[in-house]
Amino acid sequence: MPSETPQAEVGPTGCPHRSGPHSAKGSLEKGSPEDKEAKEPLWIRPDAPSRCTWQLGRPASESPHHHTAPAKSPKILPDILKKIGDTPMVRINKIGKKFGLKCELLAKCEFFNAGGSVKDRISLRMIEDAERDGTLKPGDTIIEPTSGNTGIGLALAAAVRGYRCIIVMPEKMSSEKVDVLRALGAEIVRTPTNARFDSPESHVGVAWRLKNEIPNSHILDQYRNASNPLAHYDTTADEILQQCDGKLDMLVASVGTGGTITGIARKLKEKCPGCRIIGVDPEGSILAEPEELNQTEQTTYEVEGIGYDFIPTVLDRTVVDKWFKSNDEEAFTFARMLIAQEGLLCGGSAGSTVAVAVKAAQELQEGQRCVVILPDSVRNYMTKFLSDRWMLQKGFLKEEDLTEKKPWWWHLRVQELGLSAPLTVLPTITCGHTIEILREKGFDQAPVVDEAGVILGMVTLGNMLSSLLAGKVQPSDQVGKVIYKQFKQIRLTDTLGRLSHILEMDHFALVV
């Protein structure tokens, strides 16, 4: 994948999101292997301009796509893939009243899908469409860049269908997702969380590099694949309309690839034109409109599966009536509230959605109805927002919020430890010299600072030695090549209790 991002070429006709291997024109390309080798690009942008032909009021008969309808489940399912879809609609009884809503608040519980998330729908649909058009064949390999849930859905379907599955996901995604993927037989590649989507090191860039190296491999490409919004247009939206008897006044959905909100909203605009569509985008993402909503100094966020630093091709923002931004604290607070007060075992993005819903639905009156999409299960986040310690460490809970008995030293300040200034190293000294210094002084790690004293990161003896043994660096290389740029900081005025929580999850903390 090139470091400079080429513009994806656009073909003359058809839909841009065809499933299957992508040609340089962004659509299915038939021909000899030699032709494909000559024409197939190194990668295709996940934010390529959409060429979708959908228009409100256009006859369904003019759609270029294969459409399906929700099917009634048999008493005995032939395999677990038949437990994807037909998820329950559940009334939220307490939270709406707590925040003064007059309307009825309903939750579409997508964590009841077989793999635990709304992404099971698009995973199965992308595979079925690729099999139907002859792209996927027995023994082929599926590769997908994902925040985890699409990966789980694909790995689940691949396990049943017999495909090899490789999932490329950023490091910030939970260990629970990784464990589930491994249990399903998927191979996992992790990428830096802070890598831009168009960087060769991003999950998108690495996935395309693997595709170019592995024979008979395919990126189904949830960011561009029409099967993504079509899955929701054909099934999720129809289920909502049936469950609500066609009567709903507002739908609120958090947005990642945009397939969920695009597919549902398009069908609702056709069948229930008075329904307002509300999009939820986390602070630090750029999906919301108008652009002024996205202006923030924050560039990272903890909530998973929603928000991006690019506009995915499948996201149709014209069908969203209003956007709201959400933050991590309210997302996790509301997710825990949904679990504790409503018994809905949902993930953090569901918290984002409901946090926005109780604001947006203030305009609705008694007798009206708001539906929220709860995308995934708490299963993926047992060591994250479900953990009091994690919430404390991230600053989303305060010590006084917890009532468990603490040891005698818990409320003492870090400054009472009488710490001395640490050994520091410059980023320009060599790895070999740094190892000598650390061994001589008896230290395992040291902060790396520039000549102005600005902290650049941390270097550890173990990481340097393993990097040297693996051949990633040489003793003569500058130590700046092996620094940890993500590390926890703590102030002298913070409590030892807070430091204790940090050290339970990290090997060190830097006192500043």
Rank of each mutant, 00 (worst) to 15 (best):
P2L: 14
P2T: 15
E4S: 14
E4L: 10
P6S: 12
Q7M: 03
A8D: 10
E9I: 05
E9H: 10
G11C: 09
T13M: 09
G14A: 07
C15Q: 07
C15K: 12
P16W: 05
H17I: 13
G20C: 04
H22G: 03
K25R: 10
G26Q: 04
G26T: 07
G26R: 10
K30H: 09
K30C: 03
S32H: 05
A38T: 14
K39R: 14
K39A: 13
P41V: 12
L42G: 15
D47N: 09
D47K: 05
D47E: 07
A48S: 13
C52I: 00
W54Y: 08
L56D: 12
R58E: 12
S61T: 14
E62T: 05
P64W: 03
H65Y: 05
H66Y: 15
H66G: 10
A71L: 13
S73Q: 13
S73I: 12
S73L: 12
I76A: 09
L77E: 05
P78S: 15
P78I: 05
D79K: 05
I80D: 01
L81M: 10
K83N: 11
I84P: 08
I84R: 08
I84Y: 11
T87G: 05
P88G: 06
P88N: 04
K94H: 13
G96C: 15
F99A: 13
G100C: 08
G100P: 03
L101R: 00
L101F: 06
K102R: 14
C103N: 01
A107Y: 02
K108P: 03
E110C: 00
E110H: 02
F111V: 01
F112M: 08
F112Q: 06
A114P: 05
G115T: 08
K119W: 01
D120C: 07
S123R: 06
R125V: 04
I127R: 04
E128L: 12
E128M: 14
A130C: 06
G134K: 06
G134Y: 08
T135K: 11
L136Y: 07
L136E: 01
D140N: 03
G148Q: 01
G148Y: 04
G148C: 03
T150F: 01
L154K: 01
L154R: 00
L154E: 02
L156Y: 01
A157V: 09
A158G: 07
A158D: 01
V160D: 02
R161H: 09
Y163V: 00
R164N: 11
I166N: 07
I167P: 08
P170K: 01
P170C: 04
E176Q: 07
V178Y: 04
V178Q: 03
L181D: 00
L184G: 06
G185E: 06
A186Q: 01
A186Y: 00
A186R: 02
A186W: 00
E187H: 10
T191V: 03
T193M: 12
T193L: 09
N194I: 10
E201S: 15
E201T: 11
G205D: 12
V206N: 03
R209C: 08
L210Q: 06
K211Q: 11
I214W: 02
N216Y: 08
N216V: 03
S217A: 06
H218T: 09
Q222G: 00
A226V: 09
S227L: 03
S227N: 15
P229V: 04
L230E: 05
A231V: 09
A231Y: 05
Y233C: 01
D234S: 07
T235E: 14
T236H: 04
T236K: 06
I240M: 06
I240H: 00
Q242A: 04
Q243G: 02
D245T: 05
D245Y: 08
D245A: 02
D245P: 09
G246Q: 08
G246D: 05
G246N: 05
K247E: 08
K247N: 15
L248A: 06
L248S: 04
S254K: 09
V255Q: 07
V255A: 07
G256P: 00
T257Q: 01
G258F: 00
G258I: 00
G259P: 01
A265C: 05
L268A: 04
K271M: 11
P273L: 11
P273I: 08
